[in-house]
């Protein structure tokens, strides 16, 4: 089932002024419910502009954004309702923390939704659990947390809204490897358990390979590629031409194939790489079984 869709979506910044700049041109895009879609493209390709259309922070210059088959701007007064159904976590979301305690801060979204106390408490506890914030930290001021903990708290603040679609703009930017792995793992587990549709913007191809079912490549405000993750990464030449890379492991397999080894090109995780190579080596009598 399609949950989110854009039809000929266009966005022009500063229309009618001398600084007019097209950010999105004719974007047609559909997202199936319950999938994880990765959005890649370098800075200025229109990624941020696109995701801000999905929850109505930006209004299209032309075309439509459909949520569950209904245009989100049908009733402009109800745009807040759309924001409750499409959660958006910005890049470096730490700066959105403001309340006395982490707990109250996470409750900000659910409170705005007008939920009752019990439901808010349940959601806060659940969201904190999803991102791995302990009970002890919930009572502290968000400004006393470490960088990684602040990121978790900010993520929890949006997760607690339990939206149908969750959009994350570079959720792991600036974190160290340990923090990054932990947050990606937790987000993935949450996605599997809740069936939330997820859109993740990232610069890291390795991260994308780990989490995304499908990948969309944006270039100059247009969709350059939109396909299954493996299929996108097998088109290394096209990605290179767009100034993007494939995961390093995929690069290795492209190289091996070029050198005449009988391997597939759509390998994009280390585990798959090992599982591809080991049988080949064993056939030749190497390695232990």
């Amino acid at each position: 089932m399609t949950i989110l869709e854009t039809k000929k979506l266009r966005h022009i910044y500063g229309e009618g002024t001398p600084f007019e700049q097209a950010a999105l041109t004719e974007v047609d895009f559909t997202v199936e419910s319950g999938t994880v879609v990765g959005i890649i493209g370098h800075s200025g390709s229109g990624k941020s502009t696109l995701v801000q259309h999905f929850n109505g922070l930006l209004k299209p210059t032309g075309g439509e954004v459909l949520l569950k088959g209904k245009s989100i701007w049908d009733e402009p007064k109800k745009i807040r309702e759309v924001r409750f159904q499409v959660g958006l976590v910005f890049q470096y979301p730490e700066y959105q923390l403001f309340d006395e305690t982490v707990e109250k801060d996470i409750a900000f979204g659910p409170k705005n939704m007008g939920l009752d106390e019990n439901e808010i408490a349940r959601r806060v506890a659940h969201a904190a659990d999803v991102v791995g914030l302990s009970e002890r930290l919930l009572k502290r001021s968000p400004f006393d947390l470490s960088g990684g903990e602040k990121r978790r708290a900010a993520l929890a603040g949006v997760i607690a809204m339990e939206s149908d679609v969750l959009i994350l703009d570079e959720p792991t930017a600036g974190l160290d490897p340990r923090g990054r792995d932990s947050i990606l793992d937790r987000l993935l587990r949450f996605q599997r358990e809740s069936g939330t549709t997820m859109l993740i913007v990232s610069h890291s191809m390795e991260d994308m390979a780990r989490v995304a079912d499908k990948i969309m490549v944006l270039d100059h405000g247009r969709i350059a590629l939109y396909d299954e993750t493996g299929a996108v990464f097998s088109r290394a030449a096209e990605l290179k031409a767009l100034g993007l890379d494939v995961p390093q492991i995929t690069g290795v397999f492209h190289g091996l194939r070029k050198n005449g080894l009988p391997v597939e090109e759509n390998v994009y995780t280390v585990a798959k790489g090992r599982d591809t190579l080991l049988p080949l080596f064993r056939e030749r009598g190497q390695g232990t079984c």
């Binding site: 160290d176 490897p177 390093q248 290795v252 790489g273 090992r274 190579l277 080991l278 390695g287 232990t288």
Partner: peptide, 21 residues
Amino acid sequence: LGLDVPQPTELIDQLKQAGID
């Protein structure tokens, strides 16, 4: 130590652990 190992390094390491020279 909580560090990132590049994917090529990691692949080689896993293959070595499986006994490949």
